[in-house]
């Protein structure tokens, strides 16, 4: 495998992009899970589907329209959750169904069918271009940087929302920040490594990190460690076993989660 990585630039790019996207997902994932928003990655991918269809129908750049529509959808989910008194997953379910419906209608009515649409939706971790590696690095810097800048306030708000609000923490702005970052991560991530990997990496490493954690910081660091190990172990196993890469990476993450879960129950 090491030999293969040295030989094949496409494996090097898969590893690099995978590691950076996994990092962004793991950091965001911890906040999303503690907010009970585990399904948001899944839901936003459906909204992004509508966004790509809008782009193809109107003739914009589909990735851009997907970003705009997904960010709007993410803010809509947040709004609905707050003001309609619905639980997080109800708002996600509504938006993801409507996203899928709009996407299907636009794809059919505009006559630009599934081939182009699927091309924009399903990234492939093996076919990553140099530019996309750069994009993954930028995404990781953006997510980690913004979270680090707001770390204390995010921490306060995550554990005691009311107290944070009273203490003057801009709770809604920070909510919006995490939600928008999640939308950007889902859209870029699914174009680059595919929706399966992004949706999984937003949830499983964070869940694993929370299993092992004694503090919030160790939960975030643990999630990052699990995410990075899953990408490395998954890609390695995929090469050795001749399995599809993204599925194997997801299974590796699940395996690590399972190990940490059992360790915690014993400990």
């Amino acid at each position: 495998m090491i030999d293969a990585i040295l030989h094949y630039a496409f494996l090097q790019r898969a590893l690099a992009a995978g590691l950076f996207i996994a990092l962004a997902c793991a950091v965001l994932g911890v906040f999303l899970l503690l907010r009970k928003d585990a399904m948001i990655g899944h839901g936003l991918s459906h909204v992004a589907f509508a966004g790509v269809a809008v782009g193809l129908a109107v003739g914009w750049m589909p990735l851009l329209s997907a970003l705009v529509v997904s960010v709007a959808g993410a803010l809509g989910i947040m709004k609905l959750k707050e003001s309609a008194g619905l639980h997080g997953d109800t708002a996600i379910a509504i938006f993801s169904s409507v996203g899928l419906a709009v996407g299907i209608i636009l794809a059919s009515v505009s006559g630009r069918f599934n081939v182009a649409l699927f091309g924009y939706l399903f990234g492939d971790v093996l076919a990553i271009e140099p530019l996309e590696v750069g994009l993954s690095i930028a995404l990781a810097i953006l997510v980690v940087g913004l979270v680090a800048l707001n770390y204390q306030r995010l921490l306060f708000m995550t554990f005691d929302r009311e107290a944070a609000r009273v203490a003057g923490v801009p709770v809604r702005r920070l909510d919006a920040l995490i939600t928008v970052l999640a939308a950007v991560t889902v859209v870029l991530g699914m174009k680059i490594v595919g929706i399966l990997m992004v949706a999984a990496l937003l949830v499983i490493p964070a869940a694993a990190g929370l299993q092992a954690a004694r503090s919030f910081r160790s939960a975030v660091l643990g999630a990052c460690a699990v995410a990075e190990s899953s990408v490395i172990a998954g890609l390695l196993a995929a090469y050795v076993l001749d399995w599809p890469a993204s599925g194997t990476i997801v299974l590796a993450a699940f395996l690590l989660f399972g190990i940490l879960f059992l360790l915690r129950r014993r400990g």
């Binding site: 496409f10 494996l11 093996l126 995929a238 090469y239 001749d242 599809p244 993204s246």
Partner: peptide, 29 residues
């Protein structure tokens, strides 16, 4: 629809290198 595996892709790259393939073909879909 089935995604190519890393090994398959690497094997085809190795084969294209070995045989000095001039062109790799693609299809619109």
């Amino acid at each position: 629809d089935a995604a190519p595996t890393p090994k398959t892709t690497a094997a085809i790259v190795a084969r294209a290198r070995r045989d000095h393939a001039r062109t790799i073909f693609y299809e619109p879909g």
